Amino acid sequence: MKKMYLSCLLLTSLFINAQTDIDAIMMSKNNLCAGAVYQHSSWDQYWEGSFKRTNLNLGDVSTQSVAIMGNYGISDKLNFIFSAPYVKTKASAGTMKGQEGIQDLSLTLKYMPIEKTVNKNTYSVYVLGSYSTPLSDYTADYLPLSLGLKSKTGTLRLMGDYQRDHFSTTLSAAYVKRSNIIIERNSYLTNHEVIYSNEVAMPDAISVNFRTGYRSNRLIAEFIIDNWVTQKGGFNITKNNMPFPSNTMNAIRYGVYSKYTLKKIPALSILGGYNYVAEGKNIGQSKAIYAGLFYIINFEKKSNESEQ
């Protein structure tokens, strides 16, 4: 099961980035899973600190994105994952103009040091290291319509997985280290003081993800809970003001995810899902739907044919 042919997941919300690393499936050696995911998310209510409100100057804020993703099996226990989304934002009311362009490149190494089967129970442990960096010179200080936060990030994730027959449960936790960013003004206001600088210290974050459901060679169907918690250094949106890149942005999201591998074309898979923000702080109560297509290229087979 852990050497399943496909290992591709979903593009999540703008601030949580692409989640191509937190499934408990590894690509086989010399196999490349590549494809694209389209996502549409929107919200008309958001949390200003802990206060939930609407804003008639924004109306319905929507984000569309198409992410190119890939997962290559360096070995059966080591995978290299990449993703790069093209993002478009829009507000249905007011004078703020939406943004459009390439967001951030994410690179991940995923390693499975432990996989042990006892009777019918399989236990696995994964270690993941990720790095992301902006691919374009977009404006971070234009929330909630910015393409991203423009911070370079480093992420370390530890993940454990349990599977018995077709039932599976996966739990992972990650620490996200974020670099400072430069904005196009010389001062900004926090909850406590005015900062006379164009450099913004970005708070780190912790992400916890739980997923459980059905997993087979042909079908995956999972229920997902995701919790994103900003660490020390963030602050709330000031009253009746725009969000700011270093705001505390917390979110608890619930969702469902499924992936089906075609019987007649086993290298092709279709995936889709839905998620929504149930609780949050300084973030929109978004609902998102996504769908994608992925195809497997087996370089091992081509290499063997070439040698013969």
Rank of each mutant, 00 (worst) to 15 (best):
254 Y>A: 00
206 I>R: 14
241 N>D: 11
212 T>V: 10
245 P>A: 05
222 E>C: 01
221 A>H: 02
249 M>H: 12
258 S>H: 01
289 I>T: 12
242 M>A: 12
272 G>F: 01
206 I>G: 13
235 F>L: 03
233 G>R: 07
171 L>N: 04
199 E>C: 06
276 Y>N: 10
286 S>K: 05
252 I>E: 00
253 R>P: 00
285 Q>G: 04
196 Y>W: 10
231 Q>C: 13
258 S>C: 00
178 R>A: 15
228 W>F: 10
186 N>W: 07
278 A>E: 12
260 Y>T: 12
286 S>L: 08
239 K>P: 01
288 A>F: 04
278 A>W: 14
232 K>V: 01
209 N>Q: 13
289 I>R: 05
201 A>D: 15
290 Y>V: 01
176 V>F: 10
203 P>G: 03
197 S>M: 02
171 L>E: 02
267 A>F: 05
221 A>D: 00
227 N>I: 12
240 N>Y: 09
276 Y>H: 12
265 I>V: 15
182 I>F: 03
230 T>L: 04
237 I>L: 03
217 N>K: 15
287 K>E: 09
186 N>I: 07
277 V>M: 14
267 A>W: 06
216 S>R: 04
206 I>M: 15
213 G>D: 06
248 T>V: 10
224 I>K: 13
275 N>Y: 15
209 N>Y: 14
233 G>K: 09
289 I>E: 03
256 V>C: 14
199 E>Y: 04
194 V>T: 14
264 K>C: 10
275 N>G: 15
291 A>P: 00
186 N>P: 00
221 A>Y: 06
278 A>R: 14
186 N>L: 07
291 A>W: 08
196 Y>F: 13
276 Y>E: 13
252 I>D: 01
185 R>G: 08
220 I>A: 12
278 A>D: 11
229 V>T: 15
182 I>W: 03
246 S>L: 00
223 F>P: 00
280 G>N: 11
213 G>P: 07
204 D>P: 09
232 K>I: 05
210 F>T: 01
202 M>Q: 05
225 I>S: 10
219 L>E: 03
271 L>K: 12
203 P>Y: 05
208 V>Q: 07
238 T>Y: 04
194 V>C: 07
208 V>R: 06
204 D>C: 14
239 K>Q: 09
265 I>M: 14
178 R>D: 12
196 Y>K: 11
193 E>Y: 11
239 K>S: 08
207 S>K: 12
209 N>T: 14
235 F>E: 03
202 M>N: 08
269 S>T: 06
216 S>H: 04
222 E>R: 10
170 T>F: 05
274 Y>N: 09
283 I>Q: 13
235 F>W: 08
177 K>D: 13
248 T>P: 01
186 N>D: 15
218 R>S: 13
229 V>H: 15
272 G>A: 02
234 G>C: 00
184 E>D: 14
179 S>A: 08
262 L>E: 02
271 L>A: 11
191 N>D: 15
281 K>G: 00
217 N>P: 02
216 S>E: 02
276 Y>L: 14
291 A>S: 12
215 R>C: 08
254 Y>V: 00
212 T>Y: 09
180 N>A: 09
249 M>D: 03
245 P>F: 07
249 M>E: 14
199 E>R: 10
198 N>F: 09
287 K>H: 09
261 T>R: 13
284 G>V: 01
239 K>V: 03
243 P>T: 06
223 F>L: 11
